[in-house]
Amino acid sequence: MPRIEFTPNIQRHVACPPMTVAGTTVAEVLASAFADNPRARAYVLDDQGALRKHMIIFVDGVAIADRTALSDAVGENAVVYVFQSLSGG
């Protein structure tokens, strides 16, 4: 199963420990992560479910291309990093 990790900076607002989650796309992986942590969703995604402007997600070191539908594929052993961009501070 993929593993997901969140930026340390989000932790002071809402705890997001690393976890293994189900899913084959970024959208599915995030949905799994937020299922037990619903408050974290609005810190990463906007009102329409798109990635927030100043957030960035890497799958195995590659920034995702689809920031709206989050359709980028996630492999079975992939590592998904949810970071903040340098912009937006």
Binding site: N9, A42, V44, H54, M55, G88
Partner: peptide, 8 residues
């Protein structure tokens, strides 16, 4: 207004 994490 968290620059990265949105409005709370």
């Amino acid at each position: 207004d968290h620059g990265h994490f949105g409005v709370k």
